[in-house]
């Protein structure tokens, strides 16, 4: 239970993310709040409301999007691993640095802006590992457009741990998995 008190371990270990069907589905008011949380988050990102978005992150956040590897089924390393390179392997400090870049007038590649749409679906809410936490699965589709003819799509799954902090839900942990072992675009200049 010590792990719960300080907001979880250093990494988003699989043990902290038990399969949903082994857990208790949450079907009450909390499920609707979790869903509303994710939908609002998507809107905040699309609108570049960085302060409002940062405010829904827990100070203890671990935001992780591992690189996907194209390995054989029998390879014990699997499709991704904690010790390998990740698109995001961020604590709050790192996320704030990314946001700080977006805000610079000299972020040349962001002016004119990239236009984003985050679609969120397949939301399932379960009891979390610790009290006051929810385990939330979702899928996303992110469509970005830049200039006149640039368009990039990323689709993937997310596993989130949301925690009640001071009466509000905050994002404590996120794992983002895309199916692509090679990113078919030049960058990910958004959060997923």
């Amino acid at each position: 239970m010590a792990a719960c008190a300080d907001g979880g371990g250093d990494v988003m270990a699989e043990s902290n993310l038990m399969q949903g069907n082994e857990r208790m589905a949450v079907l009450d008011e909390r499920a609707r709040k979790a869903e509303a949380f994710l939908l609002r988050e998507a809107r905040l990102l699309d609108d570049e409301r960085w302060d409002d978005w940062l405010a829904i992150l827990s100070p203890d956040i671990h935001y992780w999007m591992p690189g996907i590897e194209n390995r054989r089924r029998e390879d014990r390393l699997g499709t991704y691993s904690e010790k390998h390179m990740a698109y995001f392997d961020d604590r709050l400090r790192d996320i704030e640095r990314r946001v700080a870049r977006f805000r610079q007038p000299s972020a040349w590649a962001e002016n004119p802006p990239t236009r984003n749409v985050h679609l969120i679906s397949n939301i399932e809410v379960f009891e979390g590992e610790c009290s006051g936490e929810l385990l939330v699965y979702s899928c996303f589709m992110n469509l970005r457009s830049r200039g006149l003819d640039e368009q990039h799509q990323l689709v993937g799954r997310r596993v989130d741990v949301l925690r009640w902090e001071d009466g509000r839900l905050r994002l404590l942990r996120r794992k983002v998995l895309i199916p692509n072992a090679m990113l078919l675009c030049k960058n990910i200049n958004t959060f997923l």
Binding site: M65, M85, A86, Y87, F88, D89, D94, R97, R98, R101, A107, W108, A109, L183, C185, K186, N187, I188, N189
Partner: peptide, 19 residues
């Protein structure tokens, strides 16, 4: 981590290079 944070598709430096 630092390598990815700076020079990678999500790296804050490389984003402006690719463009």
């Amino acid at each position: 981590k630092g390598c990815m944070m700076t020079f990678s598709p999500t790296g804050v430096f490389e984003m402006d290079d690719g463009e």
